[in-house]
Design a protein around this nucleic acid. Structure first.
Length: 223
DNA sequence: AGCTGATCATAT
DNA sequence: ATATGATCAGCT
């Protein structure tokens, strides 16, 4: 894989996004000396990682923003044939064994505060190779978005910190969901139940519903 | 057709 | 082992 130094400023980062906008994944993969998988079944994170490399993201799989020095997180948005988000967006792991923190100090808010969103064609009728990269959107959380996400987060954390995480389903949360995030449903982690006993539960992640990412796209384009 | 629960690969 | 990058695929 090619190593590119991290961008030194948001401006430089945006210039790099301009240089890849409109390329097909095959074209970008060739630049990065990568081979394109025939499908994403066994390469679910391939597109995101290709983009990370191309833009000089440095955090690897560490729990840090992708562009550490700039405090910017990178998220691809897979688009269906209508140009709408096809999937929810994974944000970060749900903390199962941490002392309660505020929304303002939470890891999820730090990540979402400044995000470089990069729409990518993902219509299943297009081969992975021919899918095109869109125009990036560098967005800060608006006060309204911050408030809405905080409400969801508070509801989730109330159940999580009182040992009732198993009562949470993906139906909860208007914009922010809690869903399984694991190798499979046998991969369990320790946590504490309502009576304070140590029990095992499925690891979970925070995900943004598509109704949130639709709004991000609307800020940029008139959908 | 959309959504929820399950799953796959890789880095550290 | 647990974080990251996500999409898959069966159910409603």
């Amino acid at each position: 894989m090619d190593h590119i130094s991290p961008p030194k400023s948001p401006h430089e980062l945006l210039e790099r996004t301009h240089s890849i906008a409109g390329l097909t994944l095959a074209e970008l993969a060739h630049r990065q000396q990568q081979t394109v998988p025939t499908n994403l079944l066994h390469a679910k994170g391939w597109v995101g990682q290709l983009i990370e490399q191309s833009l000089g993201a440095s955090a690897g799989s560490r729990a840090e923003p992708d562009f550490v020095e700039l405090g910017i997180e990178l998220k691809t948005i897979p688009l269906n044939a209508s140009g709408q988000p096809k999937e929810t967006t994974y944000v970060c792991t749900v903390p199962l064994n941490e002392v309660a923190t505020s929304w303002e100090n939470s890891w999820i808010r730090q990540k979402l505060n400044r995000v470089l969103w990069l729409p990518i064609e993902a219509d299943p009728d297009l081969s992975v190779s021919e899918r095109r990269i869109g125009s990036a959107i560098l967005a800060e959380l608006t006060p309204q978005q911050d408030h809405l996400l905080k409400q969801d987060w508070l509801e989730h954390m109330e159940l999580i910190t009182t040992g009732r995480i198993n009562e949470i389903s993906a139906h909860h949360g208007a914009y922010l969901q809690v869903r399984p995030k694991a190798a499979n449903n046998k991969a369990l982690r320790n946590t504490t139940d309502e009576e304070g006993q140590s029990v095992q539960t499925l690891p979970r992640g925070f995900y943004l519903r598509t109704n949130f990412t639709i709004e991000i796209l609307k800020q940029q384009y008139a959908l």
